[in-house]
Design a protein around this nucleic acid. Structure first.
Length: 990
DNA sequence: ACGGCCACTTA
DNA sequence: GTAAGTGGCCGTC
């Protein structure tokens, strides 16, 4: 990958650079020796390294959130020879060969780095320090924070405002003060001092007779080395003066040696060092192979890897000659592991219990600490004055983050009136700011007046707006999209922000709901005040502005308090679960994108729908009388129970399936089977039901969703509702608008473009099959997509050997059903149902398919193995879908979860791709000065409203964004194809 | 008034 | 065979 493809770092990023090489030596000498039980392989330094790395990956460096690394790399020396040896051949020349039992551990530690899914960096000709210097400079220049993990004083010259250094072995943080303590100067003068004082360990000569103290004295007096050398003749002390003059060049060489090279042409750009999801089984396999039982257990627990089911990794250890006789190799005291002693050697670090090396993860410790705090609803403040509100805002600036929640009059963000808002900066410290509470008599003639003691809305917003929009304060909300919509209608654009619902969804999708009440019970063991206890429910429900302010404070401030606590628990899990990139690229940026789509809404033709309702009613009435005629009586056709009595009781038709409650099924499938046997009534029922559905769900219901103000329909998208990463749409659901039947498409025609505009529909062609071809790496499928072939015909041709030219449509149809079946985690039962063939025949088809496409079978088996071992599967962009119950003993349930797990990476990856396209779309349109507005998303399709004059320029841009949505993070091995069309209504555009 | 069940709509 | 949401019916509260 070239440098320009690599994403730049931002101020929100935090790069951790681990100095691997010095760590190895220090761990070797500082820690008690340790050998592998099975064969005496020395692993002491490996153990120390693994514990250190695991701790860093788990909790970053600070117990506070927001500090988790977004980028992480371990840097090693490549070889002893570097450019410094050309300048000064003696540089580090006196270094002894590393101890014999350390040699095999060099490779193992690199292996360990990779086993923890961490970047392992080394480059020929450069020391680790130079690579660290280069990365640190680049990251700092891009505004990111950098932390160097090392105890090497040579790295102290890099410390600066954005660059910190920490010695994890001594648990010491090095800031400017520490540098000053050690060198007597600030970080920027360290090299000047070192060039004078030299370094006996590294064989840097310096100037004879000048040590650290004198060097610091001189540099503080003269400023830098060159000035000092130029004015050396003014030095009073004779010997010092002579040495400075005589060894001036040696000092200059020394400076070159100690100056770290900050412009190494690094092979891997800094932007590519982002933290990636840990491969639990891989890490566990490695740790098992090392015999680190405690850490193995710990990693398996946290990553969810199946400890028992994973085999120890098998790899060669260069530099390690497995002794013929146990215990021969080691000569370090206590380092040997003779056969008779082996059983006495603990499986892990002796003398350094894991409890010290591997503290509880921050995520776990947090959950425990925050979860143990009590929630006290009576402790919250009601903010009634502008001055108090300003103090809360100041507190938010002080803390740097604030939990935020709005209270309104409606669940529909597009109609909701702002009633008040709540803030929290610290667990237990939260407030409610009532704004438009009215007294409770508003339903009578009098009353409905504003309650006293509320800050005027405009004044409150003036105080809050700068903070809510200030990049210095992180706003934390639960389901921010709602609050974002409410606030944007008051001219406030919240940024930057975190969303606890999305955090939970990112790390735990599939484990349960992500609503606040559920998360609060799960993580805090606290049940928040139910909304209905404040506002009631049903007909007697009151809007929040009628709630008495004391009661409102207890409820509203609690929401902010709980949200803050959830954030404190969930945010560290992005790092510990390696999900930061998923959250930051696929989840968080979707909030404003979807909010704007919901705000725009789409125009529906009310008259057209009204006419359709009439048409459907007429059709139903006609069918209805036929039904009563055939049945010989009237009954409620919409009641499956009554219908079953007529069909299978009175008329005595053969009942096929039963529903799970034991009643006769009257499903369309059953009715169609009966119709095929020549019965007249069943097909009439099917016809009636279709019309009934179209009328009730669509033509009758949709006009009720037209917003009186905007005259448009505003759906609501749920970002955290599905296990796979798909969105869902509700109130109304605009992702299931009919399209398959002629009468259904009439509904779709009622979705229209504004005057002077067109609707553009752009949809991915076969995206899930393409994703599958990529993931399972199926050569025939990839070739077919590259060549633009009819994929179902190709499948049929491959399976049955018939040429694509002049293929029987029925054969193609079967292949199509199989292709879909594959995506759904195929079973003979399901395929038989779909195609109306026997289980045996369906099984034969599947067998043939797997023979032709063995990679698909491999993929499915691998996926099943994964979900059983980890409890989750992942998409190509790292999204996780959890199936916590997949190991159930119930074979039907188990098979069901396995199919879902096979489907999830396919469906989820396709969803990720469209999310990426959506996140980029608006900027790309704006950059091209196009006014297209993204209105709807339907899983593989985007709907836009576009000024007529711009249609021709907009279509290619939309296609470009969608077809290249994987760039630059991932190179898909199949092309993506997008079909886009413009028309006056959705039906014709589709 | 609420919730489970069934049926139907989409990708 | 995967993933969703909505409406009508009907029993329970």
């Amino acid at each position: 990958m070239s440098t320009q493809d690599s994403p730049a770092l931002t101020a929100d990023d935090h790069l951790i650079l681990v100095d691997g090489s010095t760590f190895i030596f220090r761990a070797y000498h500082a820690l008690p020796p340790l050998t592998r039980k099975s064969d005496g392989l020395p692993v002491g330094a490996v153990s120390g390294f693994c514990n250190m790395l695991w701790k860093l990956l788990q909790e970053g460096l600070s117990p506070e959130p927001g500090d988790e690394p977004t980028h992480f790399a371990v840097i090693f020396d490549h070889s002893a020879q570097t450019f410094r040896n050309e300048i000064y051949p003696e540089y580090k020349a006196q270094r002894p060969e590393p101890p014999e039992d350390l040699v095999p551990q060099f490779g193992l530690i690199r292996e360990a780095t990779r086993a923890f899914s961490t970047h392992c960096i080394e480059q020929e000709g450069f020391e680790a320090d130079d690579l660290i210097a280069t990365y640190a400079r680049q990251a700092a220049e891009q505004g990111a924070r950098v932390t160097i993990v090392s105890g090497d004083k040579d790295l102290m010259q890099l410390i600066g405002p954005n660059v910190g250094m920490i010695d994890t072995m001594k648990n010491k943080i090095f800031g400017e003060a520490e540098v000053f303590e050690k060198f007597g100067v600030g970080p920027e003068k360290v090299i000047e001092v070192q060039s004078l004082a030299g370094d006996s360990v590294d064989n840097v000569p310096g100037v004879p007779g000048i040590g650290l103290k004198t060097a610091a004295l001189l540099i503080n007096e003269f400023g830098d080395l060159e000035t000092l050398l130029a004015q050396a003749d003014t030095i009073k002390q004779k010997k010092r003066r002579e040495n400075l003059i005589e060894f001036a060049d040696q000092a200059r060489i020394s400076k070159q040696l100690v100056t770290l090279k900050q412009d190494v042409p690094v092979e891997i750009p800094v932007g590519d060092l982002s933290v990636t999801d840990m491969d639990g089984p891989k890490a566990v396999g490695f740790l098992k192979a090392m015999g680190f039982s405690t850490l193995t257990k710990r990693v398996a627990e946290v990553t969810g890897a199946d400890q028992a089911g994973i085999e120890a990794a098998d790899f060669d250890v260069p530099g390690w000659d497995k002794p013929d006789h146990k215990g021969r190799l080691m000569d370090r005291p206590g380092g040997g592991s003779s056969g008779s002693e082996a059983s006495k050697v603990p499986g892990d670090l002796p003398g350094a219990p894991d409890g010290m090396m591997v503290p509880q993860t921050v995520a776990e410790a947090r959950a425990e600490r925050i979860g143990a705090m009590q929630v006290d609803n009576s402790a919250y403040e009601t903010v009634t004055s502008a001055d108090r509100l300003k103090e809360w805002v100041a507190q938010a600036y002080e803390t740097g983050y604030v939990a935020f929640d709005t209270e309104t009059t409606s669940l529909d963000a597009m109609q909701a009136e702002l009633v008040g808002l709540s803030l929290a900066c610290d667990p237990g410290k939260a407030c409610y700011v009532p704004l438009t509470h009215k007294d409770g008599e508003g339903d009578l003639l009098g009353g409905g007046d504003l309650v006293d003691g509320q800050i005027p809305m405009d004044e409150a917003l003036c105080i809050l707006k700068p903070m809510l929009e200030d990049s210095a304060v992180l706003k934390i909300a639960q389901n921010l999209k709602y609050d974002w919509l409410v606030m944007t209608r008051h001219g406030v654009d919240i940024a930057p922000y975190d969303d606890t619902m999305l955090l939970s969804y990112t790390v735990d999708a599939g484990k349960g709901g992500n609503g606040m009440d559920e998360l609060s019970e799960r993580w805090l063991g606290h049940k928040p005040i139910p909304f209905k206890e404040v506002c009631g429910s049903g007909k007697s429900m009151i809007t929040f502005d009628k709630v008495e302010i004391g009661k409102a404070t207890a409820y509203a401030a609690e929401d902010a308090d709980v949200t803050l606590r959830l954030w404190l628990i969930l945010k560290p899990r992005l790092a510990s679960d390696r999900m930061a990139t998923v959250y930051e690229t696929l989840e968080r940026p979707m909030v404003p994108v979807l909010a704007r789509m919901e705000k725009r809404g789409i125009s529906v033709d009310r008259q057209m729908l009204s006419r359709l309702s009439g048409d459907f009613a007429q059709g139903m009435a006609a069918v209805e009388s036929e039904i009563y005629e055939l049945a010989g009586e009237t009954f409620n056709i919409g009641s499956p129970k009554q219908l079953g009595d007529i069909l299978f009781g009175k008329m005595g038709l053969p009942g096929g399936k039963k529903t799970k409650t034991g009643a006769w099924s009257t499903s369309a499938q059953v009715l169609e089977d009966l119709a095929a046997e020549g019965h007249a009534l069943p097909s009439k029922i099917v016809e009636w039901r279709q019309l009934s559905k179209l009328k009730s769900t669509y033509s009758d219901a949709l006009p009720g969703y037209i917003n009186p103000e905007t005259k448009r329909v505003h759906t609501s998208y749920a970002l955290a509702a599905t296990t796979t990463g798909r969105l869902s749409s509700s109130e109304p659901n605009l992702q299931n608008i009919p399209v398959r039947t002629e009468s259904g498409r009439k509904i779709r025609k009622a979705f229209v473009a504004e005057k002077g505009h067109k609707l553009i529909s752009a949809d991915y062609s076969q995206i899930e099959l393409r994703v599958l071809a990529h993931m399972a790496d199926i050569p025939q499928l990839k070739k077919a997509f590259e060549d633009g072939l009819d994929i179902h015909a190709m499948t049929a041709s491959e399976m049955f050997g018939t040429p694509i030219e002049g293929m029987d449509p029925m054969v193609r149809r079967q292949a199509k059903a199989i292709n879909f079946g594959i995506i759904y985690g195929i079973s003979a039962f399901g395929l038989a149902n779909q195609l109306g063939i026997s289980r045996g025949e369906a099984g034969d088809y599947i067998k043939t398919y797997f023979e032709r496409f063995p990679g698909i079978k491999d993929y499915m088996e691998a996926t099943k193995k994964q979900v059983h071992a980890n409890g989750y599967v992942t998409t190509i962009f790292g999204r996780k879908a959890h199936y916590p119950d997949v190991n159930t003993k119930n074979p039907n349930m188990r098979a069901f979860y396995e199919r879902a797990a096979i489907n999830a990476p396919i469906q989820g990856s396709a969803s990720d791709i469209l999310r990426r396209a959506m996140v980029r779309m608006e900027d790309r349109l704006t950059a091209s000065k196009l006014d297209a507005q993204m209105l709807l998303q339907v899983h593989d399709e985007l709907i836009f409203e576009v000024p007529e004059s711009q249609v021709n320029d907009t279509i290619p841009l939309i296609k470009d964004v969608m077809e290249n949505a994987c760039d630059p993070a991932l190179k898909l091995s199949v092309p993506l194809q997008v079909d886009a069309r413009a028309a006056d209504n959705w039906d014709e555009a589709h």
